[in-house]
């Protein structure tokens, strides 16, 4: 335990000193701010730009628009930046041979692996929920009559989806040993999920529901059986990725 914590502390110092945590903070804070802002601001901007003679009917924006923006920003910016920044997580260690000292001092492989996973999950948990809280605050400020119906399910499902992608990132980083191959692996996996959307059966069980249907829960749609299936599949995949990564890392040649 002491070794795991020491290694996690090393990870924290590393990601602080090389500005990675700072980047996450800025990006996720901006997502938190930008989402309600663009929901509120964009329709007004469009209106002011329109010719007086053309009247278009723009629906008055609501808190749902703010969260729609949030989920799309987390998908397109937040998760992308996090996976990009964490992609070299193992490659750096393999390349420079820095793990040799840790392993030869008797630090179990599993400790290294769990500290790496903890680093990923701590970052995602901290910054994702920070971002969500900022959006929540501003959404209340600008849309005072907004409700919180379905909000927990919407935000938690995105959070769980992120946990799965990061588990896959670590697994591919353990196997692939190069800087950006893990990023491509995760990208490829998400691409496959999108392809799966074409087949209704797969769609019903696809983890992709967790990151694409978030806004629907806010509009009062009752979650059905598919969302439970999606959670189950995502959960199983996450556990599988974590376990496979640990098993492979235990047998990895480090020198």
């Amino acid at each position: 335990m002491r070794g795991t914590l020491a290694f996690l502390k090393k990870e924290l110092i590393e990601h602080t000193r090389n500005y990675k945590l700072f980047i996450f903070f800025i990006v996720f804070a901006i997502i938190g701010i930008l989402s309600p802002l663009s929901a509120k601001f964009l329709p007004e901007l469009l209106e002011s730009l329109m010719d007086e003679n053309i009247t278009i009917i723009l629906q008055e924006p609501t808190h749902v628009d703010s969260w729609v923006q949030f989920f799309s920003n987390v998908n397109q910016m937040g998760l992308v930046v996090m996976i990009l920044v964490f992609s070299p997580l193992m490659a750096r260690e393999y390349e420079k041979g820095t793990l040799v000292h840790m392993v030869t001092k008797g630090l179990p492989r599993l400790s290294i692996y769990s500290a790496k996973l903890a680093m990923l999950y701590l970052s995602w948990t901290l910054f994702y929920w920070m971002s969500a809280l900022i959006t929540l605050g501003y959404t209340y400020y600008y849309f005072p009559d907004s409700s919180t119906e379905g909000l927990l399910l919407a935000t938690v499902s995105m959070y769980i989806f992120g946990l799965m992608l990061l588990a896959l990132l670590l697994l591919s980083a353990v196997i692939l040993e190069t800087t950006f191959a893990p990023l491509l692996a995760v990208g490829g996996f998400v691409g496959l999920l999108f392809l799966g959307e074409l087949v209704p059966v797969i769609q019903e069980w696809s983890p992709l529901q967790l990151n694409s249907r978030n806004a629907q829960w806010l509009t009062g749609l009752e979650p059905g059986r598919e969302i439970i299936q999606s959670f189950a599949v995502t959960g199983i995949l996450t556990v599988f990725f974590i376990a496979a990564g640990a098993a492979l890392f235990r047998k990895k040649a480090i020198n």
Partner: peptide, 11 residues
Amino acid sequence: EYMQLSLDVSG
């Protein structure tokens, strides 16, 4: 700091 890390991981 490195020595401290080494000490901790060595148990």
